[in-house]
Design a protein around this nucleic acid. Structure first.
Lengths: 196, 196, 196, 196
DNA sequence: CATGAATGAGACTTCATTCAT
DNA sequence: AATGAATGAAGTCTCATTCAT
């Protein structure tokens, strides 16, 4: 009860949804479980959300906002590309470690309960890719990055690797310091594998 | 009829399963749809597979075997690490382009309908990681690769990026020549982003 | 509606189950028929019983309780064996005539849908036999009954004949006064067929 | 194979049906199980019997014929009623012990898969009752039996008790000598329970 | 005649959603 | 606004029966 003080029903339900969806996935979650986790009646959910699908969608949108707010809360314009990549990586990793349930639904839930949600996810994906491409273009224009590599390939590679880190961190308890991991990953991205 | 010549029912069903599961996902696929896609009756599937779950599992196992057979069909022991990474990448990309449906279920289907399958997927994942680590260790011992980066991080990064390529190739019709893509990716991995 | 006043859903369902199971038997009864007989939706049954089998089991247990409560509701300790047998017989017959559907499932339903229920039925059977044997032993000790007959055979014979009466009474509308029937049956049991 | 020499397919199938139906009951028996028990193909059964129901029916009819042939194979017209009852009882008991599977389906299978079979069973029942009544009437006319008891009640009691003996004999391995049991039962029927 | 692979009607059961209280 | 008992559409799986070989 104490933890619910000051929270509206909508927030309580979304939090319960994150908790249950992240553990069981969309199709294996029953509305009643979410209601129980929220400490409310089954019917009440429908006062705030039209359907199971809308609840899931709202949860994803809310979660992504939290993620984006966290990621963008950095003023890195003046820094070197290497540093910016490192900071971005570190922010992502810290987010994952501090929001394990949220992370599971955001990056792990690859189920696409329906077409609409699928398209929404695709749009998110494209948006992220564009931002990453912009960053790379800026780096090239500044003369810090090579210009002979395909930008689509690069942004894809970097974004997906970053995103993929959620798994060992959250699911397998990979014990690695976020700062060290970021430094190493940025080093790898910038300098490659080859022995100097 | 002509398309079924020379194929056993089991194969026909697996193919239909790949087709439908890859389009709709596990939970949104009805057994009847698979039966229709296979051109057979609903009950016939149960002559060959115990349940929907077992069908899905069999399909995944079969698909992975096809993938592995393709990937391992290379003798690259004597080549440089750079070349080996490039060839591995190329093999993966060609597989994706030539087996679009198979690719969708293997890399896109992140649903894990039940615990057993989840564990099976985890085991696969760990196996692939180990192989990649072995490759990197070999590269380090040969003196071709840096030894100051965390191996877990590296193998994770490389594998996931590779795997991630399936999406733009199969879902977004990314028109890029497999050979060129492989060369670029290997270059990126080996030399990094930094301008020389 | 009027007929349901004061009854919980569970009771309504059990009553409907008695009605339908007694007419069609376990395997020929569909859950939907019971739901219709109860005037409720198919799914509602599952709010009160886990499965068809559990419903059947609960119905049998409930019915037997009603039967036993009725049979044991007699203080006959001081009477002669002949009277006790007669009263037992009469109670049984009256129960059958007043609870025709219940009687059909209790004595007519020899189907044992599964192993567990079979064992339960066997246990009931043994319990009844033991009670009858105790009664006979008491009669022998009192000097009222012969002691040269096998007790197992006797208790079996008496119980089964009694039980068997349900059929002509309920299924064939045997028009015989319960009191007269009891008197005759007790006479037969006590004195035998032989002409004096 | 040796055991099938000289037997037609029809007989083989009926024997297999007795075996399986007696163990599992009508509804829990699959046609395939019978086919396997008969050592033939599933489809072959349908060459000899129209349906599962007809097979069951045929099996019951055949079995009952075997039973009746055995029971009637006695010339007892000149004997006393007491002796006749004893011999009838003994014949029944010996049949049960020597034809355990047959006994299970004949007396234990109270499932009535459909209406037609139910009616057939009722007809059998009435026939047996009539024969028993005739016997009792003869006894009365001869002056051996009492005439003050209801004949319907008597024939019912005796027949059912007799029939009921199958259970402890076949299902519970009641170790009692058939001759002794018959003597005791006939004694009980003739002289009753009362101490002389 | 014999077979058994194929079939699809039919039964149980689940669970998102509704609505009377 | 909140509830949860009730609902019934929908999906999985079984198995008697058919029929091409």
């Amino acid at each position: 009860m104490a933890s619910k003080r000051g929270k509206g029903k909508r927030e309580i339900i979304i939090e319960a949804a994150i908790q249950v969806f992240s553990q069981k996935g969309y199709h294996n979650t029953r509305m009643e479980e979410i209601a129980q986790a929220a400490g409310i009646g089954k019917g009440t959910i429908y006062e705030y959300f039209d359907s199971k699908l809308h609840l899931f969608q709202s949860m994803m949108e809310d979660s992504l906002q939290v993620y984006f707010r966290r990621m963008e809360n950095q003023r890195t314009d003046q820094m070197s590309m290497s540093t910016r990549l490192r900071l971005m990586c570190e922010a992502h990793i810290r987010f994952c470690l501090e929001n394990r349930e949220l992370t599971k639904v955001l990056f792990g839930e690859a189920e696409t309960p329906d077409k609409e949600l699928m398209e929404w996810a695709m749009a998110m994906r494209k948006d992220k890719l564009k931002r990453m491409q912009s960053l790379l273009v800026e780096g090239i224009e500044r003369g810090e990055l090579r210009s002979d590599l395909d930008l689509h390939m690069l942004s894809f590679s970097i974004l997906h690797t970053l995103a993929a880190f959620w798994f060992p961190l959250v699911m397998e308890d990979w014990q690695m310091d976020p700062e060290l991991l970021s430094v190493q990953y940025a080093d790898f991205i910038m300098n490659g594998l080859k022995k100097a």
